[in-house]
Design a binder for these strands. Structure first.
Length: 304
DNA sequence: AAGACGAAAGTGGTTGA
DNA sequence: TCAACAACTTTCGTCTT
């Protein structure tokens, strides 16, 4: 199944290490992360005839879902020169010619591949802008592939579907990003993301847990430069509020913001409602309303 | 002057007939 | 498809520190 020894494209070393959990492959000599399956690695040019190509097609997809044609994405120029600038001998020229045509066919042969190419490029950009872990990109790409396979893209923008896939992943992994945040980096309208998200969730039968205000605490807190103690207190308040049924039906970010506001005040690390509101992406009024509800129901003493 | 508070009216999304 | 509805926002006047 695997023909040829994989080598690092950076330094040429064959000391390749696999991290199966993250589906990452890296070179142990130079540290280059290859993010690639051994099957795709480097040796694709050996498929010189249809039978071999067939065989490779059945050998399975790459381990990294974000790199559909890695190893084939090398550019081969048209000048037929070796690296010292001399013309290649006829035999090699022919070989290069065949190599180029296979390369081209393999990289952009199907509309699915073209679609993925666009989408994954965009995904990479969004993931890095939001500083989300690579595993999120992998999972998002996997969901996106399912969507493409089921023909769910038709009539929708690639970016729209992609962003919705990312939203699903974030919700599933409990690394919450609000629709507003995703809308901002993707340039897709919030309500379009939401609508497509629901559509995909139904069509692909994906279970998405309800979003939990607690998940927002660390991020908001760090934006407000609040320490761990304040975070713990905010979480404790949310736990209690949850048991008392004070959370259902309320926007998770608003509740999280209120809990954070309360704990910042009680622990003498006070932030203004305005600051908290800004970090959480809600208004001061919402914080006040949640705050009033929590205070009312949980006889909290919120005095500095 | 800045922050907190709350009333009132407006907005966008969900739900159920 | 439409109306009712809840959550949230915007705006603004008032009170407190």
């Amino acid at each position: 199944m695997i023909d040829g020894v994989p080598t690092c494209p950076e330094c040429g070393s064959s000391n390749i290490e696999h991290d199966s959990f993250r589906a990452e492959v890296s070179c142990s000599r130079c540290g280059e992360v290859i993010l690639e399956s051994m099957i795709d690695e480097g040796q694709e040019w050996r498929a010189f005839d249809a039978d071999q190509r067939q065989e490779k097609a059945r050998a399975g997809g790459p381990l990294s879902f974000t790199k559909p044609n890695r190893g084939l994405s090398t550019h081969i120029d048209q000048f037929n020169r070796d690296d010292s600038g001399k013309s290649l001998p006829a035999y090699t020229r022919n070989q290069m010619y065949r190599l180029r045509s296979w390369h081209k066919r393999a990289s952009t042969s199907t509309s699915m591949e073209r679609n993925l190419k666009t989408a994954l490029h965009e995904l990479k950009r969004i993931i890095s802008t939001l500083r989300l872990p690579h595993a999120v990109a992998e999972e998002t790409a996997m969901i996106y592939r399912q969507a493409v396979r089921k023909g769910l893209i038709r009539g929708r923008l690639i970016e729209e579907v992609l962003t919705s896939c990312l939203y699903i992943t974030c919700r599933k992994r409990r690394i919450p990003r609000t629709l507003d945040e995703l809308a901002e980096v993707s340039g897709i309208d919030k309500k379009d993301i939401g609508r497509t998200y629901r559509f995909l969730k139904d069509e692909l039968d994906i279970e998405v847990p309800l979003s939990n205000p607690v998940d927002y605490i660390p991020r908001f807190a760090s934006q407000l430069d609040l320490n761990g103690k304040v975070q713990e207190e905010a979480k404790r308040i949310l736990e209690e509020a949850l048991h008392m049924g004070l959370i259902s039906g309320r926007g998770p970010t608003g509740v999280a913001a209120a809990a954070l506001y309360i704990s910042s005040v009680t622990l003498g690390e006070k932030r203004t409602q305005k600051q908290v509101a800004e970090a959480a992406g809600v208004t001061e009024v919402t914080i006040r309303n949640r705050y009033a509800e929590l205070k009312e129901e949980m006889n909290l003493t919120v005095n500095a």
